[in-house]
Write a protein that binds this DNA or RNA. Sequence first.
DNA 1: CCGGATCCGCTGAGATACTG
DNA 2: CAGTATCTCAGCGGATCCGG
Lengths: 126, 126
Amino acid sequence: MREKTERIVREWSDSCDAEVSIAVLGGAWKPSILTLLGEHEVLRFGELGRLLQDPTSRVLTRQLRELEEDGLITRTVYRQVPPKVEYRLSELGVSATPLLGELTRWGTQYAEQQRSSLNRVPSPSE
Amino acid sequence: MREKTERIVREWSDSCDAEVSIAVLGGAWKPSILTLLGEHEVLRFGELGRLLQDPTSRVLTRQLRELEEDGLITRTVYRQVPPKVEYRLSELGVSATPLLGELTRWGTQYAEQQRSSLNRVPSPSE
DNA sequence: CCGGATCCGCTGAGATACTG
DNA sequence: CAGTATCTCAGCGGATCCGG
């Protein structure tokens, strides 16, 4: 578990475990990574990079390491030349897929509603 | 809508609306604020501060303003001395409560699992 | 191919002090 | 009571370059 995650897990023993979820799932590319791994079962580092439209490898590596530390994904290294590394969801990662679905659903609905209200004439009071 | 939220809503038109949800719900105290407002219907600034165990008023104000800008809560000001300001969930805020419930549920489960695995003897490989 | 090392700007959270 | 005004400080995301 990452130090950041651990800190949050310890401090918020009650009352706001939602912050735990956000600490683990929040972060650049993380929801996308988990969603893609849920769809493809297994992906290599380069495949993930392409599917995500090329984050810098530095950043992608960090996110993958954090997800691994937090126990959501597994990393399999094949010691060969050229190297080959596979990522897939762990059991814990699989357990998060329904939640990711809910996050996506609500986010989509929110975005649509906000977009449509942008097109309406602002009320006189604002 | 906050500029940050708007940026995310525009950029991720497809494929990762989960980031939208996290952008809106993530942030210090926000899940707690929304949960409390869901339970109490209406709360004043000071009441919120006490229930949250005293974040600095600077921080609490910022979070409330952001939630308001993103359309999740409403702010009612009574022009009187001493001042009185009430916060409650908007319709959009109410629509997020099931999601918050899911976040809390998964977070709780995750925290418990991680805590119990901390107590187990680490495997020889680590 | 899959990274590690280094540097860097920005935002978010908090401490502290003050106010209509 | 319900904030605002300043300041600080850490950490994240990203760019760039290097390496087994």
